[in-house]
Design a protein around this nucleic acid. Structure first.
Lengths: 206, 206
DNA sequence: GTAATTTCCGGACGCGATGTCCGGACGTTG
DNA sequence: CAACGTCCGGACATCGCGTCCGGAAATTAC
C-alpha cells in the first residue's frame, strides 16, 4: 500500500509511468484499426515499450485495461445529449447530435472496442448497459412529460420508443463514426434529429 | 474426391451424420445463453456426443461452424421485410415488423452469435455487412422513388436516413428480441413502424 | 554518503484451448 | 472377403493468458 503523502512520481524527467504508456499504446493500436480481441497483451506491451510482467502489476487483465480506458467516455456524451430539451426544438436536437458525433469521433477507437467486448464479456457488458441506462431513464422521463403536456401522442409507448431511440441511435451513431465520411456528419445529424423529432417527439396524428 | 455415383449416406437408419449433431448442439448451447466466443470446441463436441477430432474433419474452425449455422437466416428476414411497400401504409409496416420479430425470435441465438463475432472477426463481419447491404440498397431505392413521387420530402438524405433505419433498426430489433418480454412485441412493432413512417417515409414539412 | 524503497525488467512456470495428425475400431458397400 | 468411409481417442506442437520471483536501476529517506 503506497503512502498518500508520497508523490506517485516526483520526478517528471522520467518517461512517465508505465501505466500511462500502456494506455496510450492501446489507444494507438486500436486507432490503427486493430481489434481489441485479437490484440495480445504481448503486442500491447511491445508497442508501449514495457515488460509483459509490468502490465499485470498495473492491470488485473485485458478487461481491466479496457474498462479503465473507457473512463469518462459515456459521461461526457451523456452530458452533451441531456443538455437538450424538447423546448429547443428540432434545430436544437440537430445541433446536439452534431456535438455528440464530435465526441464519438474523438473516442471512436475505444468506443468500438467497448461495443466489441460487450458482446461476449459480461463485465464489460454490464458497464456498457449501465451507462446506457442513464440515457434510457432520461429519455423515458422526457417522453412521459411531453405526453402529459399533450405535445407527444398519448398512444405512444415510451418504453419501446426509448429502446428505438437509445439502442438504435447509439448503433447508428457508432456506424456513422466508424465507417462514414466526416463530411456527411451534418447530413446524418440532421436526419437523426428529424427522424426522432417527427417520428417520436412530435409524431403527428391519433 | 468422393465418387458421385456413390451415395453420401445411403442408409437412413443411422443417427444422422456427426455434422448435424454438432450444428444442433451448438444451437442448443447458444440458446441456453452461452456466448459463442466463450464456447469451446471441446464443449460443443461433448454436448454433441462427438469426438473433438471429428469436429475438425467437418469444420475448418469455429468461424466456419458459425457461418454454416448462419445459413439462410438473413435471406428469410429480407424476404419478409422487402415484401412491404410504402403503398401498404403504416399499418402494413407494423404488420411486417411483427413478422420480422417472429423470425428474429426463432433464430435469436444464432443471430446474437453472429452479431457478436462480427465485431472482431473479419470473415464474419464481411458476411454480416454483405447481408445487411441487401437491406441498405433496397431502402435507398425505395426512398428515392418516394422522393420522386413527392411523398417523401426532397430535402431528406436517403443515405443517412437509410443508415438510421437499417443499422439502428437492426440493433433495436435484436435488443428487443434478446432482452424484452415477447408480450411487448406488438407495442414495439407499432413504435418502430410509426417512427420510420412519420420520421422518414412521411416526414412532414419542408 | 549509504541504505531502504519503489518500479520495472526478464524470464520461468502451469494452464487451457487451438488445430493437426495418426492408428485403429466399426459398419457399409461391392 | 476386401475396400472404403466415418468416427473415436489420444498424442502432439503451439499459442496466449495470468502468476511468480530474482535482480537491476533509480528514487527517496536517513
Amino acid at each position: 500500500m503506497p503512502s498518500i503523502t508520497r508523490r506517485r512520481s516526483a520526478k517528471l524527467g522520467r518517461p512517465t509511468s508505465a501505466e500511462a504508456d500502456v494506455l496510450a499504446a492501446t489507444q494507438r493500436l486500436l486507432a490503427g484499426g486493430a481489434t481489441f480481441t485479437e490484440l495480445g497483451v504481448q503486442q500491447i506491451c511491445t508497442e508501449a515499450g514495457v515488460a509483459r510482467s509490468t502490465f499485470y502489476s498495473h492491470f488485473r487483465d485485458k478487461t481491466d485495461l479496457l474498462l479503465r480506458l473507457a473512463g469518462r467516455l459515456m459521461a461526457t456524451s451523456f452530458d452533451v445529449t441531456s443538455a437538450w430539451q424538447p423546448a429547443a426544438g428540432v434545430e436544437g436536437l440537430e445541433e446536439a447530435f452534431l456535438q455528440v458525433i464530435q465526441v464519438y469521433r474523438r473516442h471512436a477507437a475505444v468506443r468500438r472496442a467497448l461495443a466489441e467486448v460487450a458482446t461476449y464479456d459480461s463485465a464489460v457488458r454490464d458497464y456498457f448497459t449501465a451507462e446506457l441506462h442513464q440515457f434510457t431513464d432520461w429519455t423515458i422521463k422526457i417522453l412521459r412529460a411531453e405526453q402529459e403536456a399533450g405535445r407527444t401522442p398519448a398512444g405512444l409507448d415510451p418504453v419501446s420508443a426509448t429502446r428505438i431511440i437509445v439502442t438504435g441511435g447509439e448503433r447508428a451513431l457508432t456506424d456513422q463514426v466508424t465507417s462514414a465520411d466526416p463530411a456527411s456528419d451534418p447530413a446524418f445529424a440532421r436526419e437523426l434529429a428529424h427522424t426522432w423529432w417527427h417520428g417520436v417527439y412530435r409524431r403527428p396524428g391519433t
